[in-house]
Amino acid sequence: MQSMLEVKDLAKNYGDFTAVKGITFDIKEGEIFSLLGPNGAGKTTTISMLSTLYTPTSGDATIGGHSVTKDPMAVKRVIGVVPQELALYEDLTARENLVFWGQMYGLSGKALKSRVDEVLDQIGLVDKAKNKVKTYSGGMKRRVNIGVGLLHKPRLLFMDEPTVGIDPQSRRAILDTVKHLNEQGMTLLYTTHYMEEAQELSDRVGIIDHGELIALGTQKELTQQVGETDTLILHIGENDDPEALARSLDGTQDVLEAIATDHEVSVVAREAEDVLAAVVTTANERGIKIRSIDIREPNLEAVFLHLTGRALRD
């Protein structure tokens, strides 16, 4: 499969601070690629460089064969961007917003009108098209925000955390839209800090933390990095010491790894049931009260935990 996007040693510095540290990856045509990482990991900076808004400090990327540093105008015609923050004119109606942004992408006349109608239908806002955006709910605004990115039928769509701060129903609708767009042949770069979204949508995932791409591959390839293991998440009392419990569990039989986080201890084992009794006993011996236990099979959260020693939401 041909690459739609090729990123090579892309870096961005702000003075002494390095926001993105020379990342390299590619996205194949027709793929959904997720950049998964906590807030401040460098996801938005990466998208901003790829969409030509920020000039990279070093490195380059090509999109549809065009360099983002040497031929930004050609890149802009290939890509669509759905920014994390709503970027709409609230005093204009949804239709007026779509018409204006369509014009900025070079659409005009009947083609513009027809495309605006299609997008309004696609985002389910035909009936509310004449209402000002400021009268919309958060979810409806998000849909218009996405609609703007789709107007010119981009070959590659960047979606930067499009589900932040919205209700579950709107979130579900957005995830379904992403799948639908991909089924129609669109290539997508999706950034998120929600592991479940990356798992549900992605063909491949890049895990980014502190500006570095620390893992890259399909979900299967990534989970294999932490082995075929289960993770027990022990939720302990507020006054108990998770570090102490993690240290005690580290040498327990069949426990591969025990990591303390905020009021939680994550215990990695080949089989959860093999270590469950020992974990409870150790906690009792230490006088630590276990409030609840979650058992998780290998997932991207575990991969992130394994690679960074921190939970994604930290």
């Binding site: 808004l53 961007v81 920014p83 709409l88």
Partner: peptide
């Protein structure tokens, strides 16, 4: 501040 200027700048507009 509202994000529409960056959005304009990433559209094919000089």
């Amino acid at each position: 501040a509202e994000g529409t200027l960056p959005r304009l700048l990433i559209s094919p507009t000089q």
